[in-house]
Design a protein around this nucleic acid. Structure first.
Length: 565
RNA sequence: UGGGGAGUCGCCAAGUGGUAAGGCACUGGGUUUUGAUCCCAGCAUUCGUAGGUUCGAUCCCUACCUCCCCAGCCA
């Protein structure tokens, strides 16, 4: 079911993908043999930030489609804005895509690889009378562009002769002008109702160092110009992007039409709705403010929706791929409930994680009739549904820690765990009965006393003779280890955080991280659950002899839902 | 109010002229030494609204309503 494929795209879901409009397009293309059955996609991040779960949707889509249709998916860095891009971001993106389980094989590309070609094509456009050098300032260009409801006006430089344009453009490349002195614009129409077609800027002067091309260039192509050509040069068949690029498509198509004799193909741009997840934000700007303002402890803070954060929290690549499949792909704006993501994780961890005991909020339980200093071994299965995974020893002694929530002095209706006079099974051990509650001066329960029935040990014939409904976990006080456990909750208190509000930070959940000192089984080391959630060692803060765990997600809790909704 | 998109169950999402898939959530029931998992059952006479075409419309036509995106020398 969950095999680990190596190669092209290491994906494999427990469910068959449902149809979506992009698959329908591909299937129709294949039917009419538009691309000779070829499917070539690409994931084109700009190396100016960290990848997040929204990018994961796109990665899974692009690599997934390539995988399913026996095609290939390129990883292409759209690195045309050197002021914001760095090699460090390239590295982190590479790392995240690899971690998610995808392999671009030899198809790792950079838009900057095409700078020479892009430049050559720009000269071609100039020669064709389809591009011109404009010498207006940014503000002047903006003014002449018109507005949403008013058409634009031609720049006074729009009719510059080809030779002058060529000369100017070459000198721009040579570095003869200051940043901003000139731009190259496509000559389309200043009266188009689509603002993207009002002679868009396609090259600007930026005398800055580029993380890959160094100081070779001082003019850099713009996204709209670069992207379609890069797609075409790479022989992409289906160029999948998000909805906001929908009205850039006419420009994408215009450029490739002008350049049809220069490029090998004309890919189809297809737009889908970007992911929005409740209780969090996907905006790079907001995330960056959260990091800078120390509201979280970095881009890989386990509360962040970044892939680095999710990974550190304990999310598995499989769970994220399952999530991407489960949410589907469409063009409708939508918010996916965070619960869907969490459930995908539970589904994955449930089958793969070994079980261990963690007592989060301990309450001392003393077995009065158990011999002082005595101890014995109990055997607990590593997975309740997988006997082949074997059992491990859990030592029992007279003094234990149980979960505070597993005892109620005055039991609520329907509660069937420990209470005065009540009987419950210490899981994998004996049935005990609560005989006494000891409180401190402030009336807080300090310890509870029980008696055990020596004939009821789990695994013995006596265990079958008596049935109790309640069943609680425990750890022997002298054997349990102490460990730091970090409990996380949603980043925002609002399901649909409106970060356009100036004071959106007031919407942050101030209880999104709780650090506690818990009792753990000595062998707890992977994502391992028992009762109160799935835990994973924190990959940054765990040091030898100092265990630090993150609770990735709680278990479903239908009692908790009834009792404290 | 220019242009481009979208509106199918609480949340996603198939279907697109023949009478509403699936998942999540939810509700019942069963199994269970995790109130977990697992299993079984239930859960839109209805597809933004109003008209029209048709034997028949979520699907075609018309009008309207609501929401999203676009005026970076960002991507």
């Amino acid at each position: 079911m969950k095999d680990t494929l190596k190669g092209a795209s290491a994906i494999s879901l427990p469910v068959a993908p449902t149809s979506n409009f992009i698959r329908n397009i591909i299937e129709e293309d294949n039917r009419i043999n538009k691309w000779g059955g070829r499917v070539e996609t690409r994931f084109p991040p700009e190396p100016n930030g960290y990848l997040h779960i929204g990018h994961a949707k796109s990665i899974c889509l692009n690599f997934g489609l390539a995988h399913d249709y026996k095609g290939v998916c390129h990883l292409r860095f759209d690195d045309t804005n050197p002021e914001k891009e760095t090699q460090a971001y390239v590295d982190s993106i590479l790392d995240s895509v690899r971690w998610l389980g995808f392999d671009w094989e030899e198809h790792l590309h950079y838009s900057s690889d095409y700078f020479a070609k892009l430049y050559e094509f720009a000269e071609y456009l100039i020669n064709q009378g389809k591009a011109y050098v404009d010498s207006l300032t940014t503000e002047e260009i903006r003014k002449l562009r018109g507005t949403l409801t008013k058409v634009g006006c031609n720049s006074p430089y729009r009719e510059r002769p080809v030779a002058e344009n060529l000369d100017l453009f070459r000198r721009m490349k040579l570095g003869e002008f200051a940043d901003g002195a000139h731009v190259l614009r496509a000559k389309i129409s200043m009266v188009s109702p689509n603002i993207n077609l009002r002679d868009p800027v396609i090259y600007r002067i930026r005398g800055v160092h580029h993380h890959r091309t160094g100081n070779k260039w001082c003019i850099y192509p713009m996204y709209d110009y670069t992207h379609c050509i890069s797609d075409a040069l790479e022989n992409i068949t289906h160029s999948i992007c998000t909805l906001e690029f929908e009205d850039h498509r006419p420009l994408y198509d215009w450029l490739l039409t002008q350049l049809k004799t220069m490029v090998p193909c004309h890919p189809q741009q297809i737009e889908f709705a970007r992911l929005k997840l409740t209780y969090t934000v996907m905006s790079k700007r907001i995330m960056s403010e959260l990091v800078e303002g120390r509201f979280v402890e970095g881009w890989d803070d386990p509360r962040m929706p970044t892939l680095a954060g999710l990974r550190r929290r304990g999310y598995t690549p499989e769970s994220i791929r399952l999530f991407a499949e489960r949410i589907g792909v469409s063009k409708a704006d939508s918010w996916i409930d965070m619960g869907v993501l969490e459930d995908c994780l539970r589904e994955d961890l449930n089958v793969r994680a070994q079980r261990r005991i963690v007592v989060l909020k301990p309450l001392k339980l003393i077995i009065d009739n158990y011999p002082d200093g005595g101890e014995e071994e109990c055997f607990a299965p590593n997975h309740p549904q997988k006997p082949e995974w074997g059992k491990r020893v859990v030592p029992l002694s007279k003094i234990l820690y149980i979960e505070r929530d597993d005892f109620m002095e005055i039991p609520a209706k329907g509660y069937f765990r420990l209470a005065p006079g009540a009987e419950v099974r210490l899981r994998y051990a004996y049935i005990v009965k609560c005989v006494k509650v000891v409180k401190n001066a402030s009336d807080e329960i300090e310890e509870i006393h029980c008696t055990y029935d020596p004939d009821t040990k789990s695994g013995t014939t006596g265990a079958k003779t008596r049935k109790v409904k309640g069943n609680i976990h425990w750890l022997s006080s002298k054997h349990a280890l102490k460990g730091e456990v970090r409990l996380y909750d949603r980043l925002f208190t609002q399901s649909h955080p409106d970060v356009s509000e100036r004071d959106y930070k007031a919407l942050l959940n101030t209880h999104s991280k709780e650090i506690i000192s818990a009792y753990i089984e000595s062998s707890l080391n992977e994502a391992q659950p028992e009762e109160n959630g799935y835990f994973v060692p924190d990959r940054v803060d765990t040091k030898p002899g100092r265990p630090v765990f993150n609770r990735v997600v709680t278990l479903k809790d239908s009692w908790g839902k009834i009792h404290n909704p």
